[in-house]
Design a protein around this nucleic acid. Structure first.
Length: 595
RNA sequence: GCUGGUGUAGCUCAGUGGUAGAGCACCUCCUUGGUAAGGAGGAGGCCAUGGGUUCAAGCCCCAUCACCAGCUCCA
């Protein structure tokens, strides 16, 4: 499933974005008519539609949107033409000021000198706008106003806040309907809704916003992911470390977090006249371990991994389910290595990222972020060397890099990964970052073969980012239909009549012996209801057993995604799910019975 | 943090100043059913929290908390 493509033009000479921009003008003219005195902001086309910002005393609600839509449709009856008028800068100011359009007057000043200044008119409405627009509103098209929300004038939180109305438009009714359907699908997959429906997690006002309570069902998913994660790390020579959640404030003074990051940190706790802080990052802890003794070049690289829980203060308005929280567990690791080892280490990390993302069926794009123009630390040749190492590592692993010029951290270059989920949305999770700063601040060293003390380079990296954000995204990616290997319940057992419970019981025991997670639905009640229940809980396999199955040692298999049933020997089913589990298959396998 | 909205049973939601409702889920009993909801009965609410207005507040006012749509922010 992905967002409906905006490709179809139905023979129209204008791109869809042009239509949408024009519809935003139409909306503005309707708002101006309905609410005299309204001041206009900007009203561009955006990825899936358009918006327009209004400064309007009266707060707009859903019912206002319906009225604005009605007015827009009424205006369309006269099929107004859209006309472009070029004016002088001064003329533009006068025209807008005379209508009290103060924001638009300001917008005139934003237009670079020497550029044309144009107004677009339809009916008796005109608006400062560089265009382009469709030629007239007599063409067939379809639109809908969707939501209203606050937005700062020119995106600046120190400036006045306006009301932003979002809408979308398409050339055909079918495309509009498909888009609205897609929005519904997105809603259906919302991890917050599925979190309740599938009993996955909760947040509590009593506990405070931004703190996730993982229920047993999601605990299983997480533990399965963690087992995969540790297995892949162990294969690559990572060692587990565990570090405290609270440390003396002085540690974060040395690390520089207090200086650069304090508004994200929880306030200090005073104990015996010492200030302590909850950690916002794991790196200082790993550095303490490194510094606990001297190191030889023979030991490097050191690869230390920790599923480390950190706490960061996020402003209340930005919290969002599991995706933006105040306490989360990073799948963190730090690699301490020499300059010479850097390229190989990066290649190893990229391989690990590729391996793990692929298990979940994610495709990704990798961005190479280089030295920022402004604030940054470190010698130019170190930056050049590290950036080359990132490139070399990617090349070695066959990963194409998109250049993000100047997008690096102040302490070193990095590669960020954006994954694309089943809905076509992008998420940033994986990252590998070179750090020249912390080794310096903590005066890290190793003894080289020549007996000299040298500074190691530190690599920070995360594959999943945080368990919360990754799993939250994963719920939406799978729409709650987890692959067998990490599904909370893998097999539902449904007896046709109560007297078949004994047979189901023996199947349950066998499956549990093989470490499968089974829900034996043996309570009194009708079979059909249990099927519906298992289906709505998105259990991958249902085994339905009655007289015939009990007599033959078979099971009637029903998969989550189909209504078809296949009767096969239990052992054959067991083979299937063992294979699906051991390969961490994304699907539920081929039919068992050849038709 | 800002603007607007929302907060009533586990869930989805009715309820515009006068004795708290529905559907689903849950419990009990009946039903023995071959691939998506069998029937009947029952239980379940400090109407987010704290103040206020009123003879009377789920409903009106104020504050707080949380959530929702965005904005801003996000090493």
């Amino acid at each position: 499933m992905s967002a409906p493509k905006d490709a179809s033009q139905v023979g129209e000479p204008f791109p869809l974005s042009t239509l949408r921009h024009s519809v935003s003008h139409l909306m503005a003219s309707a708002v101006a008519k309905l609410y005299p005195g309204v001041q206009m902001g900007f009203g561009p086309a955006i990825e899936h539609g358009f918006y327009y910002d209004f400064d309007l005393k009266e707060p707009l609600t859903e019912s206002h949107l319906r009225e604005i839509e009605k007015e827009m449709k009424r205006m369309l009856k006269s099929a107004p033409k859209l006309e472009c008028v070029e004016v002088s800068r001064e003329d533009a100011r006068v025209r807008l000021a005379s209508k009290g359009q103060n924001y638009k007057v300001e917008a005139v000043d934003l237009i670079p000198a020497g550029e044309k200044i144009t107004f677009y008119k339809h009916g008796d409405w005109e608006d400062l706008c560089e265009g382009p627009h469709i030629d007239n509103f007599g063409r067939e098209f379809h639109f809908k106003l969707l939501t209203v929300a606050g937005a700062y004038w020119r995106g600046d939180e120190k400036r006045p806040q306006m009301q932003r109305v979002y809408g979308t438009a398409f050339w055909t009714a079918e495309e509009l309907a498909a888009h609205l359907k897609w929005l519904e699908d997105v809603k259906e997959r919302d991890h917050r809704r599925l979190g309740t429906d599938l009993d996955l997690f909760s947040v509590h006002a009593e506990a405070g916003g931004g703190f996730i309570f993982w229920h047993p069902n999601l605990g299983i998913v997480r533990r399965e992911i963690e087992e995969l994660w540790w297995a892949e790390h162990t294969k690559r020579g990572y060692k587990p470390v565990y570090t405290p959640h609270v440390a003396r404030e002085t540690l974060f003074q040395v690390s520089g977090h207090l200086e650069n990051y304090s508004e994200m940190m929880y306030a200090p706790m005073e104990l015996e006249e010492q200030a302590y802080r909850v950690k916002p990052m794991n790196c200082p802890g790993h550095i303490m371990i490194y510094k606990s003794r001297g190191h030889s070049y023979r030991e490097l690289p050191l690869r230390w991994a920790e599923l480390g829980t950190v706490y960061r203060y996020e402003r209340s308005g930005v919290l969002h389910g599991m995706l933006r929280v105040r306490g989360f567990t990073q799948d963190d690791a730090h690699i301490f290595c020499t300059r010479e080892q850097l390229a190989d280490e990066i290649a190893g990390v990229l391989d690990l990222i590729h391996t793990i993302l692929t298990v979940f069926g994610f495709e990704y794009t990798a961005y190479l972020a280089t030295r920022p123009k402004e604030k940054s630390i470190g010698e130019p040749e170190v930056w050049t060397m590290a950036t080359a190492a990132l490139k070399a590592g990617a090349e070695k692993r066959g990963i194409a890099l998109v250049l993000d010029e100047g997008g690096g951290a102040f302490y070193g270059p990095k590669i960020d990964f954006k994954i694309r989920d089943a809905l076509g949305r992008e998420w940033q999770n994986s990252t590998v970052q070179c750090d020249f700063n912390l080794p310096e601040r903590f005066d890290l060293s190793y003894t080289d073969s020549d007996g000299q003390h040298k500074r190691p380079i530190m690599l920070h990296r995360a594959i999943l980012g945080s368990m919360e954000r990754f799993v939250g995204g994963l719920i939406e990616h799978f729409g709650g239909r987890f692959p067998l290997w990490c599904a909370p319940v893998q097999v539902a057992l449904i007896p046709i009549r109560e007297e078949h419970a004994a047979y189901c019981k023996t199947l349950e025991t066998k499956l549990q012996q093989e470490l499968f997670r089974v829900d034996a639905m043996l309570a009194p009640g009708h079979m059909n209801k249990k099927i519906k229940e298992a289906q709505s809980q998105k259990v991958p396999f249902m085994l339905i057993a009655g007289e015939r199955e009990a007599a033959d040692g078979t099971v009637a298999v029903r998969r989550r995604d189909t209504r078809e049933q296949e009767v096969v020997p239990f052992e054959q089913f067991l083979e299937l799910i063992k294979r699906l589990r051991s390969t961490r298959a994304l699907d539920l396998g081929q039919p068992l019975v050849k038709s």
